[in-house]
């Protein structure tokens, strides 16, 4: 089955890991990617600019009701949860989940419900446990979970939290994750 959506979660050290991953994806990579990167609620467009420099895919901060489209990388806006509906994104300003807004758990759980086995979830570096519960939910719905090899992560806490919950299908360093993803995009 060709994946229909890739969801990624990253926290401390995530921007570097994300840019390394994105820059290794093929220029014609055609699976939409949704990212929660923890950041301060006042952070501005600089995150988008930074990620955009690493990829020829189009990077944008999600607006409510954005269609989920191939060739795009979607970033959760600061201070909003990012949720998946069939074919489009929704947002919420509900209270933080796992101490975070946007929360990786929220993105992963809603993606799991809508896209089930056609979802790939990727947990990268981070110093908290957000994403572990989401990864469990995604796996339960038949999705695939990839975890950045903790030994290669700037902070191993978040990847390890997923491993502790037995929710990972693959453990790989970032360049290999990109290689693995490229296989689906032909």
């Amino acid at each position: 089955m060709k994946p229909q959506l890739i969801v990624m979660g990253a926290s401390l050290g995530g921007l570097i890991a994300l840019s390394q991953l994105l820059q290794r994806l093929g220029p014609a990579f055609n699976i939409p990617i949704a990212i929660v990167q923890h950041r301060h609620r006042d952070s501005k467009d600089s995150v988008i600019d930074f990620l955009q420099r690493s990829t020829s895919l189009k990077v944008k901060e999600v607006e409510d009701q954005d269609k989920i489209t191939n060739g795009w990388v979607y970033l959760a806006p600061a201070n909003y949860h990012l949720l998946v509906e069939p074919g489009y994104f929704a947002l919420s300003v509900d209270e933080p989940v796992s101490f975070a807004r946007p929360s990786i758990d929220v993105l992963f759980e809603s993606a799991a419900e809508v896209y089930g086995p056609a979802t790939i979830g990727i947990i990268l570096t981070g110093a908290n446990h957000d994403g572990a519960t989401g990864a469990v939910a995604l796996k339960a719905r038949g999705g695939t979970v990839i975890v950045q090899d903790p030994a290669t992560a700037e902070s191993a806490v978040m990847p390890e939290a997923v491993l502790t919950r037995n929710a990972a299908d693959w453990i790989m360093p970032v360049p290999q994750i990109a290689e693995w993803l490229n296989r689906f995009s032909v």
Partner: peptide, 9 residues
């Protein structure tokens, strides 16, 4: 209501 957030609530 948007189903994803309503479900969570």
């Amino acid at each position: 209501y948007a189903r994803s957030s309503l479900k969570r609530r």
